[in-house]
Amino acid sequence: MKRLEGKMALVTGGSRGIGKGIALRLAEEGALVAVHYGNRRDAAEDVVHLIEEKGGQAIAIGAGLETALGVKQLVQSLEEALLSHTGDNRFDILVNNAGIGTSQPFEETTEESFDELFAVNVKAPFFLVQQALPLLRNEGRIINISSGVTRIAFPHIMAYNLTKGALNTFTLHLAQLLGPRGITVNAVLPGIVDTDVNASWLHTPEGQKYASEMSALGRIGQPSDIADIVAFLSSSDSRWVTGQMVDATGGSHL
Rank of each mutant, 00 (worst) to 15 (best):
K2E: 07
R3I: 06
M8S: 12
G17R: 09
G21N: 05
I22L: 09
A23W: 01
L26G: 03
V33A: 11
A34N: 03
A34C: 09
A43D: 13
E52R: 15
E52W: 10
E53P: 01
Q57D: 15
Q57N: 08
I59S: 01
G64H: 07
E79W: 00
E80A: 15
L83P: 00
S84Q: 11
S84I: 02
R90N: 09
R90Y: 08
N97V: 03
T109E: 15
S113H: 06
L117H: 09
V120F: 06
P125K: 15
F126A: 09
N138R: 15
T150W: 05
R151E: 07
Y160S: 02
L167G: 00
A175H: 12
L177N: 08
R181D: 05
V185K: 03
A187I: 11
A199C: 12
P205E: 13
G207R: 02
G207L: 05
Q208R: 15
S212A: 13
E213I: 06
E213M: 11
E213P: 01
I220T: 14
S224T: 14
D225V: 11
D225E: 06
A227T: 05
F232D: 08
L233Q: 04
S238P: 04
R239Y: 01
W240H: 10
Q244W: 07
A248C: 06
G250C: 02
G250I: 06
